[in-house]
Design a binder for these strands. Structure first.
Length: 271
DNA sequence: CGTCGCTCCTGGATGC
DNA sequence: TGCATCCAGGAGCGAC
């Protein structure tokens, strides 16, 4: 599923593709997919793309005239740049046409969303304003991390997945970060020492940076804006490996449910 | 306000 | 082989 590294990969691709292109039109088949199009699409006509930026797992495409198109891929969304005359892709639900090509939003489960808003209120409307800190920015430090979790209680996994605390972590990278730091995803965060919290911080950063470096994890649905797979699935220690031997100690990896999510951990390496 | 459980979805895996 | 059932899960929402 698309998490921070996958979204970052797509945004990096789109930054090479879209700037300067002129918006032509938007078509969608599922009524819940597009929000705010009534006012937005009219305003967007003939506007040029000025920038593309990621915030958490959201993709923001900025246009002239102070419009922003926000896209969230949720579970199974793909965003693939194609020719205007290319045939419809499998599970293509929405197409965003520009003068020099067409961005196809393919989404098996139809959970993905597109919003069109004026710059002044897009953060409010999309929920972006509720997001926590960006974990790959310089201000994400040990100190900030410990401060964020200082008065929080509950299992580590639920808190890592809470987008209002840290923006962009999903199921894959939460499990990998816990493995890197030697912490069980179901352990209570209030019981962790300062040293273990620092290791968890390092684990989060390491997992996300590695994901970005390898252009995302293509386990089920993810491809980049050119339709190509990432490479990070070859480097996962726990996610998707339940029942297989731990790559560190050969203990059989345990699959459980934590915070309502499928969770894999090494009972020997993670305490 | 924090937390929980439910909901949205459907292809692929599994079971009989 | 074929049909029915289960499962995956990000995030928003209502309930408490």
């Amino acid at each position: 599923m698309p998490e921070l590294p996958e979204v970052e990969t797509i945004v990096t691709d789109l930054q090479r593709i879209l700037p300067g292109m002129i918006f032509k039109g938007l078509e969608w088949e599922h009524e819940n997919t597009v929000k705010g199009a009534l006012c937005g699409e009219v305003g967007l006509k003939k506007k040029r793309v000025t920038a593309i930026k990621r915030r958490g797992k959201f993709i923001n495409v900025f246009f002239e005239g102070e419009y922003v198109m926000t896209i969230h891929l949720r579970m199974s969304g793909r965003l693939i740049f194609s020719g205007l005359d290319d045939e419809k892709l499998r599970f293509e639900r929405t197409r965003i046409d520009f003068d020099k090509g067409s961005l196809r939003f393919c989404d098996i489960r139809k959970f993905g969303r597109v919003w069109i808003n004026k710059l002044e209120n897009y953060e409010q409307v999309t929920g972006i304003k509720n997001l926590g800190i960006e974990p790959l920015q310089k201000d994400f430090t040990h100190e900030r991390f410990i401060k964020i979790f200082a008065r929080k209680k509950g299992n580590v996994k639920r808190l890592l997945l809470d987008q209002s605390l840290i923006a962009g972590i999903g199921n894959i990278y939460a499990d990998e970060a816990c493995f890197y730091s030697g912490i069980r995803p179901d352990c209570m965060i209030e019981k962790l020492s300062r040293k273990k919290l620092e290791e968890l911080f390092e684990g989060v950063v390491k997992a996300l940076k590695q994901g970005v470096k390898n252009r995302g994890t293509s386990i089920s649905d993810f491809v980049d804006a050119y339709g190509k797979n990432g490479k990070n699935q070859e480097l996962l220690y726990v996610y998707g490996r339940g029942g297989k031997p731990c790559l560190n100690c050969k203990t059989t990896l345990q699959r459980t449910v934590v915070a309502g999510r499928g969770t894999v951990m090494c009972p020997s390496c993670q305490k």
